[in-house]
Protein backbone atom coordinates (compact mmCIF):
# COMPACT_ATOMS: atom_id res chain seq x y z
CA UNK A 1 0.00 0.00 0.00
CA UNK A 2 1.25 3.44 -0.85
CA UNK A 3 1.43 5.94 1.95
CA UNK A 4 1.55 9.50 0.70
CA UNK A 5 2.57 12.20 3.14
CA UNK A 6 3.04 15.90 2.81
CA UNK A 7 6.29 17.11 4.32
CA UNK A 8 7.14 20.76 4.74
CA UNK A 9 10.76 21.80 4.66
CA UNK A 10 12.24 25.23 5.01
CA UNK A 11 15.39 26.66 3.53
CA UNK A 12 16.87 30.01 4.37
CA UNK A 13 19.25 29.92 1.46
CA UNK A 14 17.16 30.65 -1.59
CA UNK A 15 18.76 33.84 -2.83
CA UNK A 16 17.61 33.98 -6.44
CA UNK A 17 14.23 32.91 -7.77
CA UNK A 18 15.99 30.76 -10.36
CA UNK A 19 17.04 28.31 -7.62
CA UNK A 20 13.38 27.41 -7.26
CA UNK A 21 13.12 25.59 -10.56
CA UNK A 22 16.36 23.76 -9.86
CA UNK A 23 15.15 22.29 -6.58
CA UNK A 24 11.65 21.71 -7.87
CA UNK A 25 12.72 19.71 -10.93
CA UNK A 26 15.28 17.71 -8.99
CA UNK A 27 12.62 16.65 -6.49
CA UNK A 28 9.95 16.08 -9.10
CA UNK A 29 12.29 13.79 -11.04
CA UNK A 30 12.83 11.54 -8.00
CA UNK A 31 10.97 8.25 -7.72
CA UNK A 32 8.42 8.23 -4.93
CA UNK A 33 7.74 11.94 -5.09
CA UNK A 34 4.26 12.83 -6.21
CA UNK A 35 4.64 16.58 -6.26
CA UNK A 36 7.11 19.18 -5.03
CA UNK A 37 6.54 22.89 -4.78
CA UNK A 38 9.11 25.49 -3.77
CA UNK A 39 8.03 28.93 -2.64
CA UNK A 40 10.79 31.44 -3.09
CA UNK A 41 9.34 34.25 -0.98
CA UNK A 42 9.06 32.26 2.22
CA UNK A 43 11.64 29.56 1.51
CA UNK A 44 9.00 26.88 2.08
CA UNK A 45 9.31 23.58 0.26
CA UNK A 46 6.19 21.39 0.11
CA UNK A 47 6.72 17.79 -0.92
CA UNK A 48 4.12 15.07 -1.35
CA UNK A 49 5.98 11.82 -1.21
CA UNK A 50 5.61 8.12 -0.66
CA UNK A 51 7.15 7.46 2.73
CA UNK A 52 7.98 3.85 1.78
CA UNK A 53 10.45 4.87 -0.90
CA UNK A 54 11.43 8.40 0.08
CA UNK A 55 12.18 9.38 3.67
CA UNK A 56 12.48 12.87 5.11
CA UNK A 57 16.23 12.35 5.20
CA UNK A 58 16.22 11.51 1.48
CA UNK A 59 14.48 14.80 0.80
CA UNK A 60 17.01 16.77 2.81
CA UNK A 61 19.87 15.05 0.98
CA UNK A 62 18.34 15.58 -2.45
CA UNK A 63 17.97 19.28 -1.75
CA UNK A 64 21.51 19.33 -0.35
CA UNK A 65 22.77 17.88 -3.62
CA UNK A 66 21.32 20.80 -5.53
CA UNK A 67 23.33 23.06 -3.24
CA UNK A 68 20.88 24.19 -0.61
CA UNK A 69 20.44 23.44 3.06
CA UNK A 70 16.87 22.66 4.20
CA UNK A 71 15.19 21.53 7.41
CA UNK A 72 11.91 19.74 8.06
CA UNK A 73 9.33 22.02 9.69
CA UNK A 74 6.05 21.54 11.61
CA UNK A 75 3.99 24.01 9.64
Amino acid sequence: MESLTKTILRSDELSCPSCVSNIESTLNNMDGIEQAKVHFNTGRIEVEHNTDTVSEQDLIEAIQNTGYEAKVSQF
Partner: peptide, 18 residues
Protein backbone atom coordinates in the same frame (compact mmCIF):
# COMPACT_ATOMS: atom_id res chain seq x y z
CA UNK B 1 33.20 24.66 -8.66
CA UNK B 2 29.92 25.43 -6.92
CA UNK B 3 28.64 27.54 -9.79
CA UNK B 4 29.46 24.97 -12.46
CA UNK B 5 27.89 22.16 -10.45
CA UNK B 6 24.66 24.14 -10.18
CA UNK B 7 24.75 24.97 -13.86
CA UNK B 8 25.15 21.24 -14.51
CA UNK B 9 22.23 20.45 -12.17
CA UNK B 10 20.13 22.85 -14.17
CA UNK B 11 21.18 21.39 -17.51
CA UNK B 12 20.29 17.89 -16.30
CA UNK B 13 16.82 19.23 -15.52
CA UNK B 14 16.76 21.00 -18.91
CA UNK B 15 17.01 24.49 -17.46
CA UNK B 16 19.39 27.17 -18.50
CA UNK B 17 20.11 29.28 -15.47
CA UNK B 18 22.23 32.19 -14.40
Amino acid sequence: YDIVSRAWQGLKNRHTNI
